[in-house]
Computed example of a mutant assay.
Amino acid sequence: MTAPVRVLLAEDEPLIRAGVRAVLAADPGIEIVAEAADGAEAVELARRHRPDVAVLDIRMPRLDGLAATAEIRRLLPEVAVVILTTFGEDAYISRAVDGGATGFLLKSGDPRELVAGIRAAAEGAAYLSPRVAKRVLDAMGRTVRASKAADRVAVLTARERDVLTLVGEGMSNADIANRLGLVEGTVKTHVSAILTRLGVRNRVQAAILAYEAGMVG
Rank of each mutant, 00 (worst) to 15 (best):
E113Y: 06
F104A: 00
D110C: 08
Y127H: 09
A116Q: 13
G117E: 01
A121K: 09
D110L: 04
A133N: 12
A120S: 13
V97C: 02
A96T: 10
A122M: 02
R112M: 06
R112L: 09
R95G: 14
A125V: 07
A121D: 10
D110N: 13
A116P: 09
P111S: 11
L137R: 15
R119G: 01
V97G: 00
G124F: 11
A121R: 09
P111M: 13
G117Y: 02
Y127T: 05
P111R: 10
A125F: 08
A125C: 08
D110T: 08
A101G: 08
G99T: 03
A121F: 11
L128H: 06
P130E: 08
I118K: 06
G100R: 03
L106R: 01
A116K: 14
K107P: 02
R131D: 09
L105F: 03
L128C: 06
L128P: 05
P130C: 10
G124T: 10
G117M: 04
L128T: 07
R95H: 15
L114D: 00
P111I: 12
L128S: 04
G124L: 08
V115R: 03
I118R: 04
A122K: 01
A126Q: 06
G124K: 08
D110H: 07
L106A: 01
P130K: 11
R119T: 05
G99C: 02
A122Q: 01
G100F: 04
E113K: 04
V115P: 05
I118Q: 05
G117N: 08
A125D: 01
G100A: 03
K107V: 02
A126R: 02
R95P: 10
E123A: 15
V97N: 01
R135M: 15
A116F: 04
G117I: 03
L114K: 00
A96L: 07
S108F: 09
I118P: 07
L114G: 00
A126P: 11
V97L: 07
D110R: 07
G99A: 07
A121C: 13
F104T: 00
A101D: 05
L137Y: 12
V97S: 01
L137N: 10
T102R: 11
R119M: 04
G100H: 04
S129H: 12
A120T: 12
A122E: 00
L114S: 00
Y127W: 15
G109Y: 02
R119D: 01
L106D: 00
R131T: 12
G117H: 05
K134L: 14
S108M: 15
P111C: 11
V136T: 13
A122S: 07
P130S: 09
G103S: 12
R95T: 14
A120I: 10
P111F: 12
A125W: 03
V132K: 11
R95D: 14
E123D: 14
L128W: 06
R119F: 01
D110Q: 07
A101C: 09
P130L: 09
G103M: 02
K107S: 02
A133Q: 12
G109T: 12
Y127E: 00
A96S: 09
